[in-house]
Computed example of a mutant assay.
Amino acid sequence: MCGRFAVTLPPDAMAQLFAAQPANDLPEVPNYNVCPTVQVHVVRLGETGRSLLPMRWGFLPHWYASETAGPLLINARAETLAEKPAFRAACRARRCLILATGFYEWTKDAEGNRLPWYIRRADGAPIAFGGVWQDWGRDEDRRSTCAIVTTGASEAMSRIHHRMPLILDPEDWPLWLGEAGKGAARLMRPGDEELLSFHRVHPRVNSNRASGPELIEPFDESD
């Protein structure tokens, strides 16, 4: 799964990287502790091409009467994406890219303490998570919401967690967004073994109130 991430790339650099028209109300960056229900940076395909927009991280199916009317859907499993009522329409027609610099995952020690890890692309490039989106609400309450698609973990990632977010390379973006026709389902697989690097970070990131660049710095308990 993916329950927390970091984003540090400036919006103008995001727009250039994804060849997308940026909105004027994008979330502030850097943010080293992006948590569920906040606004995140999303690229989606519209009538005039790619747009870089803010969306609520937490997919809201159209039948939710309120934001808390059902489970918080921050992730969507690739294996059941086309079958689940919440996601199956979005899987076909509303796929997006969710931007990040890296993400967090946790293991546990013998005493059950949560040990956080920071995971990023080994080549240092920004991350594009495969996602799905849904507009929810009416009139002034209408908002766009999204979820990150997840797959089974690669062998390297499985040392930390049995799931991982779907990470798409630039050559796959057109197919995922729907610009290159059909067949996006074939992209829903774990990344290559060499795709990611990871290191332990300080337990302060266990708090969703923590902030600052030190959250992604390597941490050694023996220091």
Score class of each variant (00 low, 15 high):
86 A>D: 07
89 A>I: 03
75 N>R: 05
104 Y>S: 11
90 A>C: 00
109 D>Y: 10
37 T>C: 08
60 L>A: 05
55 M>E: 07
95 R>Q: 01
74 I>H: 07
104 Y>M: 11
81 L>Y: 00
63 W>F: 01
64 Y>S: 09
53 L>P: 01
40 V>D: 08
43 V>Q: 04
47 E>H: 14
80 T>N: 10
110 A>H: 12
91 C>Q: 10
106 W>F: 07
73 L>K: 02
37 T>Y: 03
89 A>C: 04
89 A>S: 13
104 Y>N: 03
40 V>K: 06
103 F>N: 03
83 E>D: 14
52 L>A: 12
70 G>Y: 06
94 R>F: 04
37 T>N: 13
95 R>G: 05
53 L>N: 12
62 H>N: 14
57 W>A: 05
102 G>C: 03
86 A>F: 00
46 G>S: 09
80 T>P: 05
109 D>A: 13
55 M>H: 02
89 A>L: 03
103 F>P: 00
37 T>G: 04
52 L>W: 00
67 E>L: 13
74 I>M: 09
69 A>C: 09
71 P>Y: 11
108 K>H: 15
38 V>M: 15
80 T>V: 02
69 A>S: 13
51 S>K: 15
92 R>G: 01
108 K>A: 15
93 A>M: 02
79 E>R: 00
75 N>Y: 05
92 R>L: 07
108 K>L: 10
49 G>P: 06
47 E>P: 12
35 C>S: 15
109 D>T: 10
83 E>T: 12
69 A>G: 13
85 P>A: 02
51 S>G: 14
71 P>H: 12
43 V>N: 01
78 A>L: 05
44 R>P: 01
49 G>M: 11
36 P>K: 12
68 T>C: 13
60 L>P: 01
111 E>K: 15
54 P>K: 08
89 A>M: 07
56 R>I: 09
98 I>R: 00
97 L>P: 04
112 G>H: 06
76 A>N: 04
41 H>D: 07
99 L>V: 11
95 R>H: 07
99 L>A: 10
95 R>M: 02
112 G>N: 06
38 V>S: 15
73 L>G: 00
47 E>L: 13
72 L>G: 11
99 L>E: 02
66 S>R: 11
73 L>Y: 12
39 Q>Y: 11
92 R>V: 05
79 E>H: 04
70 G>A: 06
55 M>F: 13
75 N>E: 06
75 N>V: 01
97 L>R: 03
107 T>K: 14
56 R>F: 05
73 L>V: 10
70 G>V: 01
86 A>W: 03
68 T>G: 14
68 T>R: 14
83 E>H: 08
55 M>N: 04
47 E>T: 13
46 G>K: 08
99 L>D: 01
77 R>T: 06
110 A>N: 14
58 G>M: 03
105 E>Q: 10
46 G>W: 00
106 W>P: 10
103 F>V: 05
89 A>G: 02
90 A>K: 05
98 I>M: 09
43 V>L: 08
64 Y>W: 08
43 V>K: 04
47 E>F: 11
65 A>Q: 14
56 R>D: 01
51 S>C: 13
103 F>S: 10
38 V>W: 12
101 T>I: 06
66 S>D: 14
68 T>E: 13
64 Y>C: 09
63 W>D: 03
